[in-house]
Design a binder for these strands. Sequence first.
DNA 1: CGTGTGACGCGGG
DNA 2: CCCCGCGCCACAC
Length: 99
Amino acid sequence: MNPFTQAVIENISRIPKGRISTYGRIAELSGNPRAARQVSRILSTMSDKYNLPWYRVINAQGRISLKPGMGYEEQRRLLEAEGIEFDLQGNIDLKKYMV
DNA sequence: CGTGTGACGCGGG
DNA sequence: CCCCGCGCCACAC
C-alpha cells in the first residue's frame, strides 16, 4: 500500500466522534491536496477492511456526496446519531463540525 | 494505448 | 440554490 493511502486511512481513523472532515481536507493532510477523488475511492474500497468511520467524511460544500437510495440515508442517520445537525437543504455547518 | 467514470473541488452564470 | 465546465487522478475496459 502506498504512503498516501496509508496516511488517508490514518487521518480518517482520527476523526473524532461527532466531528467530520472533507475529502479534500483529508487529501491535503495526507500529502496530496489534489487527490480528493482518491480519498473517495479509498473510502469505498477500504472502509470495511480497516473499519473506517467513513460516514464522517463529506464534501467541501458541507453535504453528503452519496445519492439517495445509494447510502445517503444511512450516512445521514449515523451522523445525526453522533449529534451532527443538518439544515433544511441537507447542509452541515463545516465551521461548527469540521476537525 | 485511448476513453469513460466518479463518495471531488472551485469558479462562474 | 441549481447547473456547467474544467482540472485532477486512479482504474476499468
